[in-house]
Amino acid sequence: MLRYLARKLFIYLLTFIVAVTIDWAIPRFMPGNPVDALVSRIALMPDANAALTSYFMAAFNLDQPLWQQYLNFWWALLNGDLGRSIMLFPTPVTTLIGRALPYTLGLLLPSILLSWYVGNVVGALAARRKLLDNTVLPLGYLLTATPYMWLGILLAWVLGSSLGWFPLAFGYDQSLKAEWTWKFISSLLYHWILPFASLFLVALGGWAIGMRNMIIYELESDYANYLMALGAPQRLVRKYAFRNAMLPQITGLALQLGAVVGGALVTEIVFSYPGLGWLVLSGIQNQDYFVIQGVFLFIIVGVLLANLIVDVVYVIVDPRTRVGLQGDAA
């Protein structure tokens, strides 16, 4: 079990190093020299000009050898320094991300967990049941093929704009102050429903299809046939099949994280929801590279941490990993 986790941890550490290296290398080795572009851009902002120019020179350490720049980058990163925002100078990028992160997590965690759970249950029910299967399967394919933002756009248009049932934009009613009152919290929830629903629905389809296929596969296996030959009730056979089918779905959860995060970013943009996606968009519109890079690192760390949690859960759920038999090819 320790070997299994240690191997995984090694991969995550390696991934983190690769990701940070990419983050460091892109501004330096991209064609067109973005650093020049940055410096020429700030020349247009006289008030921040002097401060920013010296800041860029220090931040990129352009006068030092490359290896020194690389080490400096790591040092700043490990000290929690992701640079300062240009659009909201001199706010540190970490502050901006800290402000946006709760909104993104509030959307992501419930939609990932709930869609995974509901999708698995629906998929398991649909397998080998003609009538249900004929609705679940096409609907599932339709949902997985839908781009995240488009379902968000449709929901916003029908339920928000046309029917007026839900707000179209923002994380809470802009006339309210952010404080822990009942009025504010209910406004938060009210604005959360549509973006949550669109993320939830798109992710749901894939899980349902995956579970349905796995259950069919399990029901064809020897142990299922043997149980049925013994006259075991359908319910019991399906229960065992469900447990076995869960394992690949847990691994699948880790693999899907990146895609769901991307989906959350665009969903936030549709609803002007003040999370990381909205932050990235304003970063792109204002060419605020430090913000984009900061969000990138936060996403990497978040996805790696989530992967690690999934691995621990996997070890708990699958006894084979505990006794040293590799249950899942690492």
């Binding site: 991969i11 995550y12 991934t15 690769v18 990701a19 990419i22 983050d23 892109i26 991209m30 693999l255 994280l257 990146g258 895609a259 995060v261 991307g262 970013l265 990235v280 984009i292 890079q293 969000v295 990138f296 996403i299 990497i300 996805v303 790696l304 992967n307």
Partner: peptide, 12 residues
Amino acid sequence: LVIPTFAVLLVV
């Protein structure tokens, strides 16, 4: 596989 490739594409 583990890197959220979408985030990489974003920065690039």
